[in-house]
Simulated assay, not measured.
Amino acid sequence: MRGAWAEFITGTCVLIVAFGFAVVGFQRGGWGSSTESYVLNASFRSIEGVTVGTDVRLAGVKVGKVSDISLNPASFRADMEISLDLGIELPDDTAILISSEGLLGGNFVELQPGGSPFNYSAGETIMDTQGSVSLLNLLIKFASGSSQ
Rank of each mutant, 00 (worst) to 15 (best):
L58H: 08
A122E: 00
E101L: 13
G20H: 10
T129N: 11
W31L: 14
V17M: 13
T35Y: 12
Y38S: 01
G123P: 00
T125H: 08
A95W: 11
A95C: 08
N107C: 13
S70D: 04
L111K: 02
E48N: 09
M127I: 14
S134I: 03
S100Q: 09
S67I: 01
G64T: 03
G145L: 01
L71P: 09
S100K: 09
D55T: 15
P113V: 00
G20D: 10
T54I: 08
A74P: 01
A22D: 09
T10R: 07
S46D: 10
S99W: 05
V39T: 09
A18N: 12
V61Y: 14
S116I: 02
S147F: 06
G145A: 03
P73D: 12
S144T: 10
F8V: 08
A59P: 15
G87P: 15
G102P: 00
S33C: 15
E89D: 13
S70W: 08
A6Q: 13
T51C: 04
Y120P: 01
Q130T: 14
G11K: 06
G102T: 00
A6P: 11
I140Y: 12
F118P: 03
L138V: 08
I47N: 08
V14K: 06
V66W: 01
D79M: 02
L90C: 07
L97R: 11
G114C: 02
D93H: 01
F44S: 07
N41Y: 10
K65C: 06
